[in-house]
């Protein structure tokens, strides 16, 4: 595995007998992806309990606790890939340099994996198919296998990300989907959201996302986000202890200059005029 330092382990296991005390609680500093092939499992990931069935994919992120509720590995067959990723500050992570995804895609995927449930319920079992091909490539060493293995890992991450976001958004209720996004934007307004990232967060392609947001809200996604930033900044401007640079950065503007220009363009007031107006009213 020396040419794939990011692959910690790959394998499958058919468990025919119960061995008591065989499954201990563990925390790893890499991603553990399991595919349930056969049998029924009761696992606990962080503080949540999950019943797992064939076809399910389980995702245990770095630093997250995994244990079996019964303390042993149940009878059945599972396959796994353990994958090392680069940890960033604030607990998020991205796939390493082996990945051919772009920086922003890797970042978005990391965020989406962090903010969704760790289990994909699926009847198609894409995960175990990719696992199978991966194992063949690693065993056979055919021409191009080095590239092919890394491509398959990218494919695995992309597939899991798409399925996770689609699982939460079945494509029926746009207002509900959009509200989920709005809440994520508000929780992290200082982040430099791109339209691709906003769309991916709710499991949509950028083209459809742009059209739907425009029809539903009357704004392009970018303008909708600017409105949110300005609305939030108005609340912060009422707090005299905050300075303009902090307000600008907290609400996602590049600088206090960028904040000031955008604010003035929309309201007619500069932030400092607006703050004075507020204190003059009372």
């Amino acid at each position: 595995m020396q040419i794939f330092p990011h692959i910690v382990s790959i394998g499958s296991k058919k468990n025919n007998a119960i061995q008591l005390e065989s499954f201990h609680e563990s925390i790893a500093d890499f991603i553990r992806i399991f595919s349930i092939i056969d049998g029924k499992y009761e696992w606990q990931i962080r503080d949540e309990q999950y019943q797992l069935y064939p076809g399910d994919t389980v995702l245990v992120l770095p630093g997250r606790r995994l244990s079996s509720i019964k303390g042993f590995l149940e009878i059945g067959t599972i396959a796994w890939v353990h994958l090392r990723v680069e940890r960033l500050d604030k607990g998020d992570f991205i796939a390493g340099e082996w990945s051919s995804l772009s920086d922003s895609e890797r970042f978005t995927i990391g965020n989406i994996l962090l903010s969704n449930k760790p289990v994909i319920r699926s009847r198609t079992d894409e995960t175990s198919r990719i696992f199978g091909v991966l194992r063949n490539e690693l065993f056979n060493h055919e021409i191009g296998f080095h590239t092919r293995v890394n491509q398959l890992l990218d494919e695995l991450l992309v597939m899991i990300t798409r399925q996770l976001t689609k699982q939460g958004n079945p494509g029926r209720d746009f207002p509900k989907t959009f509200l989920q996004l709005e809440q994520k934007l508000r929780e992290n307004l200082s982040h430099q959201w791109s339209v691709e990232e906003m769309a991916a967060t709710v499991g949509m392609g950028t083209t459809l996302f742009n059209v739907k947001v425009k029809t539903y809200t009357g704004f392009t996604p970018t303008n909708y986000l600017i409105n949110l930033r300005i609305a939030e900044s108005i609340k912060l401007l009422r707090k005299p202890e905050l300075n303009f640079t902090d307000i600008a950065l907290d609400t996602g503007f590049y600088s206090s200059q960028h904040f000031s220009t955008t604010f003035k363009k929309l309201t007619g007031y500069t932030p400092s005029e607006f703050r004075k107006k507020g204190s003059a009213d009372s």
Partner: peptide, 24 residues
């Protein structure tokens, strides 16, 4: 037109952000 969301922090609650409505 421009739309704004309604938040339901608890099932019985229906709230909106006044500044968001103003800016919209």
């Amino acid at each position: 037109k421009g739309s704004y969301p309604t938040f339901h922090p608890y099932p019985d609650y229906s709230e909106q952000d006044p500044e968001q409505i103003f800016i919209t």
